[in-house]
Design a protein around this nucleic acid. Structure first.
Lengths: 344, 344
DNA sequence: TTGTACGCGTTATCAA
DNA sequence: TTGATAACGCGTACAA
């Protein structure tokens, strides 16, 4: 049979020593090995092109080198960028990325965590906002507890209601800041296009919007708050809904860039000029935001960089480095482009 | 110590039988098990919330349930969509996706394959075009052979010079078709913005463009062929390069949508109207292509669907279904929108 | 400095 | 119908 893969034994045989010695060489063990045999072993490894079987190592160590990343939608560049950042960092340390695309579905999210458990993932990243569902939280809470007991390192981006390292993305502050900017430009009748109800992020950003208004003593007009779904298509629909009240509105704050982009597109499609007729802003600073007509004024949430930071944090944790700061909270910043008209 | 995970032994103990029996129940073995003990075992499994350790199963079976997907850039929606399609299909069968982001780098691609080998991936998908580099091909060829010997199922999207299942994406045909469309609208002075030299896909699409011209007996003007990199930013730069000769050109064929979008943006930025002054087309039909100004006429390459098909193919192969067709070649189609002016 | 023996959790083989 | 045993490939006490 030619199906036999090369194992530590083959190396040992060729090097004329025991498998134990080979193992020691592979792992740079503290245990002394004479430089002579070490050379022999290395020779044999090269000769046979031997690479230790990770599965076997995993069974022994109860570590898989798998880092699970759960995203709502990998086609959303917000998540794609974060995944890219994580992957680029951790691959240098021979960890591997295992992604799950949940489409914000509760079932799929639970399934993902289950898979990560049975595959003994070393770490898990909840890249997206948590789902606001009681049943989900209860079950997921147990699963997460279970993972933690296994020693899995868990990180959540934006607050999750589990006892894990939560990275504050400044969602509320972001929405407040961009709304404030719009207010500073003299706008007072401002519509808001919210994200999906089930996401925590939506709620936080809505809060930020309302807070900004309240600080100025401006009443929140619920007729001007539209529920959407964080997508380009959703933004388009929101624009259509907004059409009835568009005359009394001078600006629209969208809960994220994808929505803002869709909104602008449809507004333009309807013959309404941005920013001449109505101003539009978003949150996220997606790569495509600077290429819209007009370029979108927004808040930068550097998720690619955050991905790298998460990767670094995980590696430190997994390597047992004791002095490890939690991943630094991301610095948001206002990106002023051309989608807001100055009313002053 | 409370670190002990629940194993098959714990279940056996609780059910009052041997681990062997438990294993038989888990795997629905042909080997007979009395319905009484079967019930007992199932009871115990539920009671203890037991799930077999995949790593241990993997060591035994030399299968990991890992499907590796190597992409050039996960932030490119072309790849994101494909990954999504694959993931959605295979996750129903409890396989897991392991992605690698190579940025078209040779080193990283080799590293990826290495990782997939040592982790005993059951299948590997080369989601992107192959790299046109002799050294790379030689080394990668060996690696791929090696994987195949292990029994890894390997699929390549667009032809790869390895003995694997290659899915023809109709790149040449796509470029030829869209160019033909432009010709049919009466355009004769047509510029072409090519993809990166190192990608096979680039070459194929370039061929398609040239073929379309040749079929009409039109000379290819090398001054009007611009090298770019398949990105939005690259498209912008290409527009700038094109500025010198823009007067003699009535249409531009971009090798992909991202490029076309960047091109249109910069053209518009420079005060050149699309399609009034110059027409622009792309290839891919990215989600964002229908939202540009004007909406982009392009060729649809349904990569999300292709991802699903690949997933299905892999599952069939991995489950040992004998009668398995290779993944159907994707049906391309012309998407006529508003970026081409009719000169006739 | 080297090697032997065992175990990680599971399953295939064989015996009962 | 059930179970004891060995083995997957590796790493680690322990012994030499």
């Amino acid at each position: 049979m030619e199906k036999s893969e090369i194992t530590i034994k083959d190396v040992a045989k060729l090097a004329g020593c025991s498998p134990t010695t080979v193992s020691r060489v592979i792992n740079n063990s503290d245990h002394p090995v004479s430089s002579k045999t070490k050379a022999l072993v290395k020779e044999a490894i090269k000769e046979l092109n031997f690479r230790p079987n990770r599965i076997a190592q995993g069974l022994k160590s109860d570590k898989s080198h798998i880092i699970g990343v759960i995203v709502h939608d990998i086609c959303d560049s917000y998540f794609a960028q974060m995944v890219k950042g994580i992957e680029e960092f951790i691959s240098d340390y021979d960890y591997i990325i295992n992604i799950y695309n949940t489409n914000r579905g509760i079932e799929k999210e639970l399934h993902s965590v289950n898979m990560l458990k049975v595959n003994r993932a070393d770490a898990v990243v909840f890249a997206g906002s948590t789902l606001l569902d009681e049943e989900y939280r209860k079950i997921m809470g147990e699963y997460v507890q279970n993972l933690k007991k296994q020693g899995t390192v868990i990180v959540g981006v934006t607050p999750h209601p589990f006892e894990i390292v939560n990275i504050e993305l400044g969602n509320e502050l972001a929405a407040q800041t961009i709304t404030d900017y719009v207010l500073n430009k003299g706008h007072r009748k401002i519509a808001y296009v919210a994200g999906p109800k089930i996401l925590n992020t939506s709620q936080q950003r809505s809060e930020g919007f309302k807070k900004a208004l309240k600080c100025r003593g401006i009443e929140v007009d619920n007729r001007l708050i539209i529920r959407s779904d964080f997508s380009f298509e959703g933004g388009r629909k929101a624009a259509l809904e907004l059409l009835d009240n568009i005359d009394e509105v001078t600006a629209v704050v969208a809960a994220n860039d994808a929505t803002a982009l869709g909104l602008m597109w449809e507004l333009n499609n309807q013959g309404i000029k941005v920013p001449q007729d109505v101003s539009v802003v978003g949150v996220d600073d997606l790569p495509e935001a600077k290429y819209s007509y007009p370029p979108l004024t927004t808040i930068s949430l550097p998720v690619y960089k955050l991905g790298k930071q998460i990767g670094e944090y995980l590696i430190n944790k997994l390597h047992g480095n004791k002095i490890v700061d939690d991943p630094a909270n991301v610095q948001i910043s206002l990106i002023e482009r051309g989608s807001v008209r100055d009313l002053l």
